[in-house]
Design a protein around this nucleic acid. Structure first.
Lengths: 129, 129
DNA sequence: GTCGATAGATGCAGATTACACATAGCCGCG
DNA sequence: CGCGGCTATGTGTAATCTGCATCTATCGAC
C-alpha cells in the first residue's frame, strides 16, 4: 500500500503519438487535402495533446516516403508556399486496416477489463482452455 | 494514379505496439495478476499481431519503473521462477486516462472520416472559419 | 545425461521522438 | 523604410524504443 507514491512521477499523462499520430493525419487527409500547418492546428483543436509541429512535418514526409500520401507545392495563395498533401490509394488501404486493428485492440481492452470483474480468483485456474 | 507502387513495400500491415502494448498489459493486469509469459500468450490469443516476448518483458519492467505495476518472484509453482505482476493504483489511474484519450482519438478519427464524406469540395473553402 | 518446454532477460542496430532552433515570405504599423 | 509578428516548413541532436537473435536457468520425461 505504501508504494503508491512514484516519486519520479514519470509522465502520468497519456500521450497520443506514433501510429496514433500518423493515422490521425491519414484520417484527416481522407476526403480533404491539407498542408502541415493546417493539420497541426486541426489536431490540436481535435484534442490531441501536445502535437509538436516538427514531428507532424516529419511524419508527413515519412508517410510520403511510405507511399501513403502524396504532396505538391501550392503557391496559389499568398504567404509562404504550402506543401499540399493528399491521401493515396495505399494510404486508404492502410487506414482501413488500422481501423480494423484498432477495433480489435479495443475489444481486447474491454474483454480484459470485463473478465474476472468481481470474481478475481486463482490466476492459474482460469476458464480458458 | 500510377504512383500506387511503392517499390520498397514498407510494411503495409498495421502494428500495435508502444502505448498500445503497454496499456493492453495494464488492462490484462486489472483484476488479474499474471506473469510475462502468460501475458505474452494472452496477447497473442487476443489477436495482437507480432508480440515479441522480449519487448513484453521489457515493457513490464518499464511499467514497474513507472510505478504502474509491481512485481514479486513467485516460486510456489514448479518450473522456473515467475515474476508475478499486479496493477498499482497509479496504473489504474493511468489506464483510465488512457481509455478516455483513446475514445477521444476514436472520435477524432471518425469525425475526420465522416466530414466531407460525399461532398468533398474545394479544400480552401471549408466551413471552418 | 540429454532433450524440450517454460520463464525471463539482454545486446545491438535501426527507427522514432521531443525539444530547440533555423529559414523564409507576407503583413501591418509608425 | 525598418521592424516585429504570424504563417509555413524544415533540421540537429540526444534520448528513447523496437525487433531480432541469443543467452541463462529450471523442471519433467525418457
Amino acid at each position: 500500500m505504501s508504494e503508491t507514491d512514484p516519486s519520479p512521477s514519470p509522465d502520468v499523462r497519456p500521450r497520443l503519438h506514433g501510429e496514433l499520430l500518423s493515422t490521425s493525419l491519414l484520417a484527416f487527409l481522407k476526403n480533404w487535402n491539407a498542408y502541415g500547418y493546417q493539420l497541426t492546428q486541426r489536431l490540436a483543436e481535435a484534442g490531441m495533446p501536445e502535437c509538436d509541429s516538427g514531428t507532424v512535418y516529419r511524419q508527413l514526409r515519412q508517410l510520403e516516403r511510405s507511399g501513403f500520401v502524396s504532396s505538391f507545392w501550392d503557391t496559389s495563395e499568398s504567404g509562404p508556399a504550402r506543401r499540399m498533401y493528399s491521401l493515396t490509394k495505399a494510404g486508404e488501404i492502410f487506414l482501413t486496416g488500422w481501423i480494423e486493428a484498432l477495433q480489435n485492440y479495443q475489444g481486447v481492452l474491454q474483454k480484459a477489463l470485463a473478465s474476472f470483474d468481481g470474481l478475481a480468483r486463482d490466476p492459474g485456474a482460469n476458464t480458458k482452455s
